[in-house]
Amino acid sequence: MTATTLDMLLLALGVFGVMVGLTALGEALRARLGTHENHPVIETYMTRVRSWWAMVILLSLALLSGRTGVLILFGFVSFAALREFLTLTAKSQADHIALATAFFMILPAQYILIGMDWPGLFSILIPVYAFLLLPIVSVLRGDANRFLIRVAETQWGLMICVYCASHLPALMTLDIVGYGDRAVLLIAFLVLVVQLGDLLEYYFGRRLGGRRVAPGISPKTWAGMAAGIASAALIGGLLHWVTPFGPLGAMAMAAVATTTGLFGNIVFAAIRRDKGVKDWSHLIPGQGGIMDQLDSVAFAAPVFYHLTRLIWG
């Protein structure tokens, strides 16, 4: 067993430990209220815990199986997220081929380029080539009605669900001196700190109250955000042994990633409000859609990727 696999197993065991604790907490609350009463808050909580279990197990298996497994997992995550996003964007039948191209050609191509370790191309495929190609494909069908809105919303979906999200598996392609094949651990680090930061921000935000960051869009408060970012930094510091950043570096990276993620979360709250939906879909029981889980991580991933590459690459 390599040192990387061992660290990954340790990390997985740690996360499983936390999950066992969360599950036990729910069961204890259930037992205290008696078995016959179905308490809606506890049942919602338990549904969420079950969905977290599924996510933790899937991600652990993918990371342990190596590069191909990670690419396939995130390829499907991008697919499911793009499906939710483009369900709500403006489109007409003239866009049919362009949208099929986005799903069945651009998306796989992005992940194949990452698998081929070709950063020169995977970092411009969507922002340059898909950006130029898709409106050409649409315009050939000759429908100018709301053309710019259709093209722009499709491009935005591709950027966030495919381009940004694919920077998570792209972390595996980074060559970091003295870090060897351990770059795959950075994926676990980023997902963990951003997701836990989200969760703790929610918890502290409810307790602390205070002034809102974006009134009318999101209930997030400045105090809750600060507490969430600080706790994410602490968690990042505790997990520094899986990163090449060192304790202080890991804290700073966790804080930057969580800050970006939380603001990304607010951006997505505005998009949901604009489209008149509460959740992106019902794919994950108790949590809404894939997009509801992915928004903060997708915002954080490119920033995290480029900082790592610039400073430690």
Binding site: R83, L86, Q93, H96, I97
Partner: peptide
């Protein structure tokens, strides 16, 4: 809901939308 966008008449490839 949505099936007229997923598979409109005359198209061959279904679009993956919800």
């Amino acid at each position: 809901a949505n099936l007229n966008t997923i598979m409109p008449k005359g198209e061959v490839i279904p679009l993956p939308l919800i």
